[in-house]
Amino acid sequence: MLLEINNLEVLYNEVVLVLKGLSLAVPEGRIVALLGSNGAGKTTTLRAVSGLLKHENGAVTQGTITYQGARIEGRPAHEIVRRGIVQVMEGRGVFDELTVEDNLRAGLAVRGGGRRAAGELETAFGYFPVLKARRRQVAGYLSGGEQQMLVIGRALMTRPALLLLDEPSLGLAPLVVGELFRIIQRINREAGVSILLVEQNAQMALTIADHGYVMEGGRIMLDGPARELQDNRNVREFYLGLTEQGALKSYRDVKHYVRRKRWFSS
């Protein structure tokens, strides 16, 4: 296993318990989807792995995170990036005052600030040709889709072995989401980068993922191969909005029955 999270507990501000014994694993070279409703603790899981938790006043209070055989929980973010894990934050944290090229060069920090940037820049431009055309533009003026591509490209500059993606489809048009997910799949296949993907768009996430986990209330409630999850009745109703017949079901019909239902009960 490339990444193994075992019985993880995370506390914010020393009082708010967000993860309550979460366990999951990312095998080498795979795409793993982490699904769940708002507030389930998906983003917290990614932050715990990437070391960004400290910045948000959170801390791992129990459990272990093992990456390539070494324990990494509680390590500072820059050390974790150097080990090969990089998180792409939700909401596209571009450096909006910097040019596209400088945004990308910032990703070279862990390797001495980027003297030999040319090779990495070409790799990033290879996946995202749009960025090459806009390399001298200030990133704040890019479209939402372009900004998302920029932050993924920037993460690739660190030459990661494991990419943590937090809701890459957030606020993007369906066509752009499709393109983005094709590129994510290419990054996985061509560069061999393993991916832990957090998504609200479960349908999309499960189409490219090998394995899926469903979170609720800070724990994993269900997991299995992506294909099986896609066929699972509960996942279909909760996340894909589909009934047995494959027709769209209105939220109103679902709510009385399913909303109170827990994953245990099925």
Partner: peptide, 17 residues
């Protein structure tokens, strides 16, 4: 570049190491 990046968006700067 690193100094400008950190000045611009601290959390994002942390996230790229």
């Amino acid at each position: 570049v690193m100094m400008r990046a950190a000045a611009n968006h601290q959390a994002a700067a942390l996230s790229v190491g």
